[in-house]
Design a protein around this nucleic acid. Sequence first.
DNA 1: TCGATTTGACCAAC
DNA 2: GTTGGTCAAATCGA
Length: 337
Amino acid sequence: MASCGGAGDDGGRSPPAVVYDDLVEVREHAATLQTMLQGSPRVLDMDARELVKGMMAKLSSAMSVFGSTSGGVEASSGRKKRSATASGPHRRSTSRRRSKSPFISMVTARTLNDGKTWRKYGQKYIHASTNPRSYYRCSHKPDQGCQATRQVQESESNPSEYIISYYGQHTCKDPSTFRSLFIQGAADAAPPADCSNLISFTSINGAAASTSTSAFAHCVVKEAVDLHPMLSSRFSNYSSSPPVQEGVSSGSPSPAGHGKFMQYAGGQLVDVIDQRTSPLTVGSAPAEYWPVAGDAGAGMDSFPSSPSPSSLGFMSGSLGGSFGNSIYDDDLFGFDS
DNA sequence: TCGATTTGACCAAC
DNA sequence: GTTGGTCAAATCGA
């Protein structure tokens, strides 16, 4: 399994093709793992760990491809500068469009409250989208120069949800928004009781699948912690869990055992994407963006167990939106059958 | 009155 | 030429 080479040794193939192959392989590994977990009461722990490790490597590899090819992270330097001689009532000598902050993550949420204070500075309808996109920047930008921004767009597939893209790290110090993180007992305790946001690798047909998936998720969580001593050390002391909405995904019949796995596991992936700017990210969003306990329904709790293109937007975010809408959508994480 | 939001315009990137 | 991100005047609301 699991060559960790991923994008690096694919000899000129297009990133989508590379990623697709990697994800297909991950799916195969997931199926194998599922079979192992379901078919044998005595799964060799090392085998399972190896499979998971390989899957994580492939996912990381895939994500790194997008990270390396992602547009919008930095403005290209090759662009010609527009003439500064423009005139008009609102013309200014400085450019209006500045280089974007590095992409951090994309999350699906049912509320815009993520514990941070944002100032809306624009809204517009985006081409081929029925819903307007709102632009927010950290309200501490004027006083602390915080460069964090986010873009909020109502989910077309589920109007009650918002697709939130985060750019730039919060550099502001706002005690009111400092919050605990959960990852409750990720390494040692049982998997979180409520894991409604896991991207499910299970088969709907198998009643035992939820158990398998929980075990799998737990395994991967452990893996992530193992691979990230920083994560382990940082989160080991957190004792509180963020609110996790029950049934946040409309019509999601998934068992409660599907939790934050993909978000957590994705933390590693996102970490791969944005190592330059986000050496420590947990979940699809960095810790700074996680919901405050008590913010009912805030933030990171809205990945459907059966991922939809919009719910996978955290992947599409680094692809300029093409990923989540590609023909590969159904295959990328369509492990539910 | 003041801070937040709205909205049309500007402008870089494609 | 089109699209998307940002600016800032106008407007709104507490």
